[in-house]
Amino acid sequence: MIDKHIIFFGWRIIIFTLKFIYSTYQFELIMPNNNEEEISRIKELESINLSSDEIRDSVVYTKKQVEKENELLASKINLDLKNNQIKSFDIVGAIGAGKTEIISQIVDKVQKKYRTLVICGDITTRVDADRIEAHNAETVQINTGRECALNAYHIHQIIKNKDLQNYDLLFIENVGNLICPSDFILGTDKRIVVVSTTEGEWVIEKHPMLFKMSDIAVINKIDLKERLGTDIEKMIADAKKLNPKIEVVTTSAKTGTNIEKLISIMGL
Protein backbone atom coordinates (compact mmCIF):
# COMPACT_ATOMS: atom_id res chain seq x y z
CA MET A 1 0.00 0.00 0.00
CA ILE A 2 2.89 2.37 0.81
CA ASP A 3 4.50 1.66 -2.57
CA LYS A 4 1.25 2.47 -4.35
CA HIS A 5 0.96 5.77 -2.56
CA ILE A 6 4.54 6.67 -3.39
CA ILE A 7 3.90 5.87 -7.06
CA PHE A 8 0.59 7.75 -7.04
CA PHE A 9 1.94 10.90 -5.46
CA GLY A 10 5.09 10.63 -7.57
CA TRP A 11 2.93 10.70 -10.69
CA ARG A 12 0.93 13.66 -9.44
CA ILE A 13 4.14 15.58 -8.69
CA ILE A 14 5.50 14.84 -12.18
CA ILE A 15 2.22 15.85 -13.81
CA PHE A 16 1.97 18.98 -11.71
CA THR A 17 5.56 19.95 -12.51
CA LEU A 18 4.99 19.44 -16.22
CA LYS A 19 1.74 21.38 -16.04
CA PHE A 20 3.36 24.24 -14.18
CA ILE A 21 6.42 24.49 -16.46
CA TYR A 22 4.32 24.24 -19.58
CA SER A 23 1.56 26.55 -18.38
CA THR A 24 4.14 29.18 -17.41
CA TYR A 25 5.79 28.80 -20.82
CA GLN A 26 2.42 29.06 -22.56
CA PHE A 27 1.34 31.97 -20.45
CA GLU A 28 4.39 34.00 -21.41
CA LEU A 29 4.01 33.13 -25.07
CA ILE A 30 0.38 33.64 -25.92
CA MET A 31 -1.67 35.14 -23.09
CA PRO A 32 -4.15 36.70 -23.14
CA ASN A 33 -5.27 35.41 -26.58
CA ASN A 34 -6.85 32.01 -27.35
CA ASN A 35 -7.42 31.05 -23.73
CA GLU A 36 -9.52 27.96 -24.46
CA GLU A 37 -7.09 26.64 -27.06
CA GLU A 38 -4.24 27.18 -24.65
CA ILE A 39 -5.97 25.25 -21.87
CA SER A 40 -6.58 22.37 -24.26
CA ARG A 41 -2.91 22.28 -25.32
CA ILE A 42 -1.69 22.33 -21.74
CA LYS A 43 -3.94 19.41 -20.86
CA GLU A 44 -2.74 17.32 -23.80
CA LEU A 45 0.83 17.41 -22.55
CA GLU A 46 0.01 15.65 -19.30
CA SER A 47 1.51 12.20 -18.89
CA ILE A 48 1.69 11.42 -22.61
CA ASN A 49 5.43 12.00 -22.69
CA LEU A 50 5.81 9.37 -19.96
CA SER A 51 4.53 6.63 -22.27
CA SER A 52 6.95 4.54 -24.35
CA ASP A 53 6.93 4.89 -28.15
CA GLU A 54 5.14 1.53 -28.47
CA ILE A 55 2.08 2.65 -26.54
CA ARG A 56 2.19 6.41 -27.15
CA ASP A 57 -0.50 6.42 -29.86
CA SER A 58 -2.95 4.40 -27.79
CA VAL A 59 -2.25 6.55 -24.72
CA VAL A 60 -3.00 9.71 -26.72
CA TYR A 61 -6.15 8.15 -28.19
CA THR A 62 -7.41 6.89 -24.82
CA LYS A 63 -6.69 10.18 -23.11
CA LYS A 64 -8.59 12.13 -25.75
CA GLN A 65 -11.51 9.72 -25.56
CA VAL A 66 -11.70 9.95 -21.76
CA GLU A 67 -11.61 13.74 -21.89
CA LYS A 68 -14.28 13.73 -24.58
CA GLU A 69 -16.47 11.40 -22.51
CA ASN A 70 -16.11 13.64 -19.48
CA GLU A 71 -17.07 16.70 -21.53
CA LEU A 72 -20.10 14.95 -23.04
CA LEU A 73 -21.25 13.83 -19.61
CA ALA A 74 -20.69 17.32 -18.21
CA SER A 75 -22.84 18.75 -21.02
CA LYS A 76 -25.59 16.26 -20.19
CA ILE A 77 -25.40 17.17 -16.50
CA ASN A 78 -25.66 20.86 -17.32
CA LEU A 79 -28.66 20.23 -19.57
CA ASP A 80 -30.40 18.12 -16.88
CA LEU A 81 -29.80 20.84 -14.29
CA LYS A 82 -30.99 23.61 -16.59
CA ASN A 83 -34.10 21.64 -17.55
CA ASN A 84 -34.93 21.55 -13.84
CA GLN A 85 -34.10 25.25 -13.29
CA ILE A 86 -31.25 24.34 -10.93
CA LYS A 87 -28.41 26.83 -10.52
CA SER A 88 -25.10 25.05 -10.08
CA PHE A 89 -21.61 25.86 -8.80
CA ASP A 90 -18.39 23.84 -8.57
CA ILE A 91 -16.20 25.07 -5.70
CA VAL A 92 -12.49 24.30 -5.93
CA GLY A 93 -9.58 25.24 -3.69
CA ALA A 94 -6.87 23.88 -1.44
CA ILE A 95 -7.51 22.05 1.83
CA GLY A 96 -8.23 24.64 4.50
CA ALA A 97 -8.97 27.53 2.10
CA GLY A 98 -12.48 27.79 3.51
CA LYS A 99 -14.64 26.11 0.84
CA THR A 100 -16.85 24.30 3.35
CA GLU A 101 -17.36 27.33 5.56
CA ILE A 102 -18.19 29.55 2.57
CA ILE A 103 -20.74 27.02 1.29
CA SER A 104 -22.20 26.72 4.81
CA GLN A 105 -22.55 30.50 5.07
CA ILE A 106 -24.20 30.77 1.65
CA VAL A 107 -26.55 27.84 2.31
CA ASP A 108 -27.52 29.44 5.60
CA LYS A 109 -28.36 32.76 3.96
CA VAL A 110 -30.27 31.40 0.94
CA GLN A 111 -32.11 28.47 2.55
CA LYS A 112 -35.47 30.24 2.49
CA LYS A 113 -35.12 30.92 -1.22
CA TYR A 114 -33.45 27.73 -2.51
CA ARG A 115 -33.72 24.00 -1.83
CA THR A 116 -30.06 23.07 -1.89
CA LEU A 117 -28.14 19.89 -2.65
CA VAL A 118 -24.43 19.85 -1.83
CA ILE A 119 -22.12 17.16 -3.20
CA CYS A 120 -18.91 16.98 -1.18
CA GLY A 121 -15.74 15.43 -2.54
CA ASP A 122 -13.04 14.25 -0.15
CA ILE A 123 -10.49 11.48 -0.21
CA THR A 124 -12.08 10.08 2.92
CA THR A 125 -14.52 11.02 5.74
CA ARG A 126 -17.78 12.99 5.55
CA VAL A 127 -16.63 15.75 7.91
CA ASP A 128 -17.40 18.54 5.41
CA ALA A 129 -20.78 17.08 4.48
CA ASP A 130 -21.76 16.92 8.15
CA ARG A 131 -20.72 20.55 8.68
CA ILE A 132 -22.82 21.71 5.72
CA GLU A 133 -25.76 19.47 6.64
CA ALA A 134 -25.95 21.33 9.96
CA HIS A 135 -27.06 24.34 7.86
CA ASN A 136 -30.15 22.55 6.54
CA ALA A 137 -28.87 21.47 3.14
CA GLU A 138 -29.07 17.93 1.81
CA THR A 139 -25.60 16.50 1.23
CA VAL A 140 -24.08 13.57 -0.62
CA GLN A 141 -20.51 12.58 0.15
CA ILE A 142 -18.16 11.14 -2.44
CA ASN A 143 -15.00 9.61 -0.97
CA THR A 144 -12.59 9.44 -3.87
CA GLY A 145 -10.05 7.22 -2.13
CA ARG A 146 -6.94 7.66 -4.24
CA GLU A 147 -8.38 10.14 -6.76
CA CYS A 148 -7.59 13.82 -6.26
CA ALA A 149 -10.59 15.32 -8.10
CA LEU A 150 -14.24 14.67 -8.83
CA ASN A 151 -15.20 13.99 -12.44
CA ALA A 152 -18.44 14.28 -14.40
CA TYR A 153 -19.16 10.56 -14.03
CA HIS A 154 -19.24 10.87 -10.22
CA ILE A 155 -21.71 13.74 -10.45
CA HIS A 156 -23.86 12.03 -13.06
CA GLN A 157 -24.12 8.91 -10.89
CA ILE A 158 -25.65 11.06 -8.17
CA ILE A 159 -28.00 13.27 -10.13
CA LYS A 160 -29.42 10.43 -12.21
CA ASN A 161 -30.57 8.85 -8.94
CA LYS A 162 -32.14 12.06 -7.63
CA ASP A 163 -35.48 13.65 -8.40
CA LEU A 164 -34.06 16.97 -9.60
CA GLN A 165 -37.40 18.66 -9.22
CA ASN A 166 -36.72 18.69 -5.47
CA TYR A 167 -33.82 21.14 -5.81
CA ASP A 168 -33.15 24.72 -6.94
CA LEU A 169 -29.45 24.98 -6.17
CA LEU A 170 -26.49 22.60 -6.45
CA PHE A 171 -23.05 23.08 -4.94
CA ILE A 172 -20.23 20.68 -5.68
CA GLU A 173 -17.33 20.99 -3.27
CA ASN A 174 -14.40 19.42 -5.08
CA VAL A 175 -11.55 17.51 -3.44
CA GLY A 176 -9.24 19.98 -1.71
CA ASN A 177 -6.34 20.94 -3.95
CA LEU A 178 -5.58 23.48 -6.67
CA ILE A 179 -4.20 21.07 -9.27
CA CYS A 180 -6.25 18.00 -10.20
CA PRO A 181 -9.73 19.63 -10.45
CA SER A 182 -8.50 21.45 -13.57
CA ASP A 183 -8.52 18.09 -15.36
CA PHE A 184 -12.30 17.69 -15.28
CA ILE A 185 -15.25 19.98 -15.84
CA LEU A 186 -18.35 18.89 -13.96
CA GLY A 187 -21.20 20.47 -15.88
CA THR A 188 -22.00 23.28 -13.46
CA ASP A 189 -23.01 26.78 -14.55
CA LYS A 190 -20.01 28.34 -12.86
CA ARG A 191 -16.77 27.34 -11.21
CA ILE A 192 -15.60 29.22 -8.10
CA VAL A 193 -11.98 28.97 -7.00
CA VAL A 194 -11.27 29.71 -3.33
CA VAL A 195 -7.85 30.67 -1.98
CA SER A 196 -6.99 32.21 1.36
CA THR A 197 -4.54 34.72 2.75
CA THR A 198 -2.85 31.93 4.69
CA GLU A 199 -1.69 30.32 1.44
CA GLY A 200 0.52 33.32 0.64
CA GLU A 201 0.28 35.93 -2.11
CA TRP A 202 1.95 33.67 -4.71
CA VAL A 203 -0.74 31.00 -4.57
CA ILE A 204 -2.64 32.34 -7.59
CA GLU A 205 0.30 32.78 -9.95
CA LYS A 206 1.50 29.30 -8.96
CA HIS A 207 -1.82 27.69 -9.96
CA PRO A 208 -2.80 29.41 -13.22
CA MET A 209 -5.01 26.69 -14.70
CA LEU A 210 -7.83 26.82 -12.19
CA PHE A 211 -8.00 30.61 -12.39
CA LYS A 212 -8.18 30.47 -16.17
CA MET A 213 -11.02 27.96 -15.93
CA SER A 214 -13.00 29.70 -13.16
CA ASP A 215 -15.69 32.36 -13.26
CA ILE A 216 -15.30 33.67 -9.71
CA ALA A 217 -12.20 33.88 -7.50
CA VAL A 218 -12.70 34.14 -3.75
CA ILE A 219 -9.80 35.35 -1.60
CA ASN A 220 -10.84 34.20 1.87
CA LYS A 221 -9.61 34.84 5.42
CA ILE A 222 -9.10 38.56 4.87
CA ASP A 223 -9.59 38.97 8.63
CA LEU A 224 -6.01 37.62 8.91
CA LYS A 225 -4.41 39.80 6.23
CA GLU A 226 -2.93 42.37 8.64
CA ARG A 227 -1.42 39.74 10.88
CA LEU A 228 -0.03 37.74 7.96
CA GLY A 229 0.97 40.72 5.86
CA THR A 230 -0.41 39.06 2.71
CA ASP A 231 -0.47 41.31 -0.35
CA ILE A 232 -4.14 41.01 -1.33
CA GLU A 233 -3.81 43.53 -4.17
CA LYS A 234 -1.18 41.31 -5.81
CA MET A 235 -3.49 38.30 -5.51
CA ILE A 236 -6.35 40.23 -7.15
CA ALA A 237 -4.04 41.48 -9.90
CA ASP A 238 -2.69 37.97 -10.53
CA ALA A 239 -6.20 36.54 -10.90
CA LYS A 240 -7.21 39.31 -13.30
CA LYS A 241 -3.99 38.92 -15.29
CA LEU A 242 -4.61 35.18 -15.73
CA ASN A 243 -8.28 35.62 -16.53
CA PRO A 244 -9.48 39.16 -17.27
CA LYS A 245 -13.12 37.97 -17.13
CA ILE A 246 -12.89 36.48 -13.63
CA GLU A 247 -14.87 38.17 -10.84
CA VAL A 248 -12.75 38.55 -7.67
CA VAL A 249 -14.21 38.95 -4.20
CA THR A 250 -12.39 39.08 -0.87
CA THR A 251 -14.19 37.41 2.04
CA SER A 252 -13.96 36.23 5.58
CA ALA A 253 -16.20 33.22 6.03
CA LYS A 254 -15.37 33.35 9.74
CA THR A 255 -16.71 36.89 10.27
CA GLY A 256 -19.16 36.85 7.35
CA THR A 257 -17.45 39.75 5.59
CA ASN A 258 -18.54 40.05 1.93
CA ILE A 259 -20.48 36.78 1.90
CA GLU A 260 -23.56 38.75 0.80
CA LYS A 261 -21.45 40.33 -1.95
CA LEU A 262 -20.35 36.86 -3.09
CA ILE A 263 -23.97 35.68 -3.12
CA SER A 264 -24.84 38.69 -5.27
CA ILE A 265 -21.97 38.00 -7.71
CA MET A 266 -23.19 34.39 -7.95
CA GLY A 267 -26.60 35.71 -8.98
CA LEU A 268 -28.46 34.07 -6.08
Binding site: K4, Q141, I142, N143, T144, G145, R146, E147, H154
Partner: peptide, 8 residues
Amino acid sequence: GDYPTFIE
Protein backbone atom coordinates in the same frame (compact mmCIF):
# COMPACT_ATOMS: atom_id res chain seq x y z
CA GLY B 1 -8.49 -3.12 1.04
CA ASP B 2 -7.01 -0.04 -0.51
CA TYR B 3 -9.15 3.12 -0.57
CA PRO B 4 -11.93 2.57 -3.12
CA THR B 5 -14.18 5.40 -4.28
CA PHE B 6 -17.50 5.54 -2.43
CA ILE B 7 -20.53 7.50 -3.57
CA GLU B 8 -22.91 7.31 -0.63
